[in-house]
Design a protein around this nucleic acid. Structure first.
Lengths: 248, 248
DNA sequence: CATGATTGTTTAAGACATAAACAGTTTAGA
DNA sequence: TCTAAACTGTTTATGTCTTAAACAATCATG
């Protein structure tokens, strides 16, 4: 990482005037005619990186480590992938797999959007590093990412909202899932307990400075498990969207 | 970075059984009696790092670069700060400054929460690196972060919601601001235009795969500027919260 | 005034991404 | 069939980063 944006010439012929990284994401690359048979593919490399990240976290995904998985040198990967940035993009794309099929989920926009959010949430749960991976660089490019977006927008079509509003609602839902995943990632069980211990210790010393917070903790607002955060947030947002629809 | 979690012994005496990093965040450190006068403080270091990050991005904040700002060697900083992780935490704390005073903002919970969100948004706008800085590691520890949280929770007290619900609403609002900042950070003006160009190019080739998306773009859903994303999202969420309140 | 805590420096280790040069492999075209 | 181009994978090397370790200089307190 830490590489400045560099033009990086595109030498492909068949992949028509697309930046190399994007051609890769869309699988639009020409396979070579001459030379030794490639022993790898970008997709296999990305897959290995994904299982590695799933098991040991994104930090341990280095070119060296991934290459070792195939018994080749780190530099060998550069024959398939322009750089680490692009590898991570491929990882994201790999994990997004096929978008959810919402046709089975009733026909209401609300049920469908809710289902969409839950599927997306499941992906974040299965691959916690996804958050960091998409946080670092540009969003939304690969076909799988676009497909997810497409299904959400399709679910919103029957609402009667304007296209601009539908887009905003999509952003809202996607953002909610994402930010919740963020909050989860920060607080695993152990860490949460430790955080609670330290925070109450500190609050004891400064309870006058944080009255509302102190009270909230005393009332168990942070330890109650009766509310599922994802559903709570979704219900509020969707209720709010319903209000907007009714008003039109 | 890329440092495994290491216990790191605490040698302070006055800072009572707090991990060094946290004592630092709360300003609970004893100043030394003997030895040369320190030429720096953790706060001044953090401040320099903040102005550096504001000007040139978080990537350029390296121990070397920050130290150079004071004309000292990189290692000198380690006399004041245990490591880079803690420096970043101090940066966050520095930028959160004093929490907003919402007492001037009418008395309704809704107006106050909205104002809170706008202030938080302003912070993200002023310091785009804040996102990456808080994304990497644990959230919420320093007194300033807690103070922001406190004001939001205080604004929610008159709603009649349960403590658990208020907490969830807080998370929802904070998450919305954050995820919006995320989306903004990814898409500056130029990048946005380039993204639109490439995406429509790709959609032209695969429009059958993404019907809803294609239509949305054709309808200008992505280029309409009439809706302010922050206010749109807030209005939906707050409407939804209102529904919940009315139902109780 | 000397002792020991504390500051800042130099040196160096180890991880990382990736550039450059090179040796071996395969196939298209002569 | 042979040769040259295209391609793969390797080794070597560079620059960047965090941070450990050893050391020299400094200053209040006994």
């Amino acid at each position: 990482m830490a590489r400045a944006a560099k033009p990086r010439e595109n030498k492909d012929k068949k992949a028509r005037d697309l930046p190399t990284g994007i051609a890769l994401l869309w699988g639009e690359q020409d396979q070579p005619a001459r030379g030794p048979k490639p022993s790898l593919t970008p997709q296999r490399i990305a897959q290995a990186a994904v299982t590695l990240a799933d098991a040991e976290g994104l930090e341990t995904v280095s070119m060296n480590r991934v290459a070792a998985e195939f018994g080749v040198s780190a530099m060998a990967l550069y024959r398939y992938v322009p750089g680490k940035t692009e590898l991570v993009e491929l990882m994201v794309e790999a994990v997004l797999a096929e978008p959810p099929d919402l046709s089975a989920v009733g026909s209401g926009w609300r049920a469908r959007l809710s289902a969409w959010a839950h599927r997306q949430w499941a992906v974040y749960q299965a691959h916690p590093w996804l958050l960091a991976a998409t946080a670092m660089r540009r969003q939304i490019m690969g076909p799988h990412q676009l497909a997810w977006m497409d299904t959400a927008l399709a679910a919103l079509e029957p609402t009667g909202l304007t296209p601009g509003q539908r887009h905003q609602v999509f952003l809202l839902i996607a953002g909610q899932v994402r930010s919740l995943a963020q909050q989860r990632a920060d607080f695993d069980e152990d860490h949460n307990r430790e955080w609670g211990r330290l925070t109450s210790e500190l609050l004891n010393r400064h309870s006058d400075r944080f009255p509302a917070l102190t009270k909230a903790i005393a009332d168990g607002a942070f330890t109650s498990t009766e509310l599922d955060p994802l559903d709570f947030g979704l219900d509020r947002i969707l209720d709010g969207v319903q209000v907007l629809i009714d008003r039109a």
